[in-house]
Design a binder for these strands. Structure first.
Lengths: 354, 354
DNA sequence: CTGAAAGCGCTTACAG
DNA sequence: CTGAAAGCGCTTACAG
């Protein structure tokens, strides 16, 4: 392995000078700089990241934590994001990764040794010299003690799709409230008046905000939403399928369904097919997120496009600003606007019950 | 931060003894062991991973590299896995992560500084003291110079869905050949004789092996596959959609389509719908992989289930065996068997052209 | 502008 | 069985 010592020898300088050249110290003679760079090039030297982390007390590593079914597996990792409910976040992951790497940081999924006490969780991140943390997804509720511990330790943190506050914390998310307003007004403009709303778990921020947006839009149109048409459920496709079946067996006095996400919409679409209902002739259906698949369902899905790239990159940029910046205040939260995408799953209301 | 020095003081021993207790050295008195453990517990000590990595010349970190469209972005990262073509690998990622973490390792997506020369790529992994590497996906062809460099550096490596050889390398994949045999024989048993095959890029191992399996099964049934019915294309849903449109506009002398993956099947299904063809009444359609969505398409998809968990965990276990083991030989390649899942997208052949 | 020296927090021969 | 010392590869006051 090539070390800075060897570079120093070849360049005829000390290790300190090599280090200064590498770290862009201002007070270096042009000549020394050149010789060091030449030596680096001929030897193919790259600084040892581990040694750097040890002495700098900070690595160039950003940890990613993800929501998780705490009952079954109390970690913060990918385990639950692999489920259909989280395809959207997996899509976003690529933008996060790309931005992290392009800024010269590594992206880490940290393991959690020694049980899962909140202090242990934070300590394990500190022992990895993690520069900052991104918490992706909705399952981090304020009372989560691990998150509390993280915030108290002043590790720079960005929440995506959740509210996060702290001296070194901020958040990034889509404008879910407004997105729900858009999709509801689209249905209203098609003449729909009785609209069923199958939301995700209302404890999750995006589900709650979307429900709020729907209700705002309905209220503005002078419609009082009927409680029996609002059905909260899981984000998973199979849960949405089950909820839709229950609803359809119970009542049919509605002409449109607002699903809590695209994946939920796919499950609902399957239930509608099985009940012999045609979309959009008999009933209109909408999603949220605009996953790539939504333009290939049959019929293609009217939905809301979230700007994954703006959210993912914005989160990373804010995190690195906190890591490298000297400002006292964390950056303000970022709320990214959304866009209605009209496809073939919505049409004029027949005005009649199913 | 709590250091081993503080533990040593509280326990009334030296740092060396603390280290020996932690690393399970055999020659330690029971008394010292107890005192050290007590001190660790009261102080909440956890060893500094970075310092450990520096002195051990190896971290507890496993790097994950993914295929990538080399033309556009010559890295080995998530960027392309976020596309629909790779939902299957994203699903597998969770099992890889879970096994890595449960073994006490971290999972790393390493950044690639200083351009992308093969030597630089390997060097950057070495500078992170990476313990081993998992290469996930089909886009690593033997000539890839980065992979060559990696293998020469003797960094333990496991290839998933690709052939990898080396002193410290092995591979894990599903039995694609046999899976294609199963799905083809299923169609043959339904009376289909003229079967179109829309494969992924044949340069990718799974696509090639699946095509091979189809041809074997057809040959055994005495059917000579017609070249014009074999259409290689991209893994992406939109590419499969386009390929299907071209095929359907050109000819219709077939009664079934074998798609190269579930996602490709979704694109093809959309094209069939648009052409007014019913599945499975007019035409049968099959996929590969059994992504969760495939039971919710309309109709639900007959496909091949790959055991993501066996593949993901098997890869990690083999990698760690190479990292920690003293054997000279790398573990033999693992080929995981697959299972036919019959749903509603396949039915008896009408025997007639479309 | 530059070098010698101390130090980051561990582990591991070496002695005893 | 255990401690003192050296060393992993870097960075950074400190002096000059």
């Amino acid at each position: 392995m090539v070390t800075s010592e060897q570079v120093a020898q070849l360049a005829g300088v000390s290790r300190a000078t090599v280090s200064r050249v590498l770290n862009g110290s201002p007070r270096i003679s042009a000549e020394a700089r050149e010789r060091v760079h030449a030596a680096i090039a001929t030897l193919g030297y790259e600084p040892d990241r581990v040694a750097q982390s040890l002495v700098r007390h900070r690595s160039h590593t950003i940890a990613l934590a993800l929501p998780n079914d705490q009952e079954r597996e109390p970690g913060l990792n990918l385990s639950s994001i692999g489920k259909t409910s989280h395809y959207f976040y997996l899509d976003m992951l690529q933008y996060i990764e790309r931005e992290v790497l392009s800024q010269g940081y590594d992206l880490l999924f940290p393991s959690r040794p020694h049980g899962t006490s909140p202090e242990n969780y934070t300590r394990s991140l500190q022992m990895r010299r993690v520069a900052g943390t991104i918490l992706l997804g909705q399952r981090f509720h304020p009372p989560d003690p691990r998150i509390q511990s993280l915030l108290q330790a002043n590790i720079p943190t960005v929440f995506i799709d959740n509210l996060g506050q702290g001296n070194r914390a901020t958040s990034v998310k889509a404008d879910h409230v407004d997105s729900a307003r858009q999709i509801t007004e689209h249905l209203l403009s098609l003449g729909h008046r009785r609209i069923a709303i199958l939301t995700g778990p209302i404890i999750d921020l995006p589900a709650m905000e979307r429900l709020l947006g729907c209700q705002h839009a309905l209220a503005r149109a002078g419609i009082t939403p009927e409680p029996g048409l609002i059905r909260p459920g899981g984000w998973n496709i199979d849960e949405a399928y089950a909820t839709a079946n229950v609803l359809l067996d119970e009542r049919r006095d509605f002409t449109a369904i607002v699903a809590g996400s695209d994946l939920m919409a796919f499950g609902i679409l399957h239930a509608l097919h099985e009940h012999g209902l045609r979309v959009p002739e008999d009933i209109s259906l909408t999603g949220f997120d605009d996953v790539e698949l939504s333009q290939y369902s049959n019929p293609s899905l009217t939905t809301i496009r979230q700007d994954r790239e703006a959210i993912g990159r914005g989160a990373v940029q804010r995190l690195i600003a906190m890591i490298e910046g000297k400002e006292e205040e964390p950056p303000p939260p970022l709320v990214v606007s959304t866009q209605l995408v009209v496809r073939k799953s919505t049409g004029p209301s027949s005005g009649k019950n199913l």
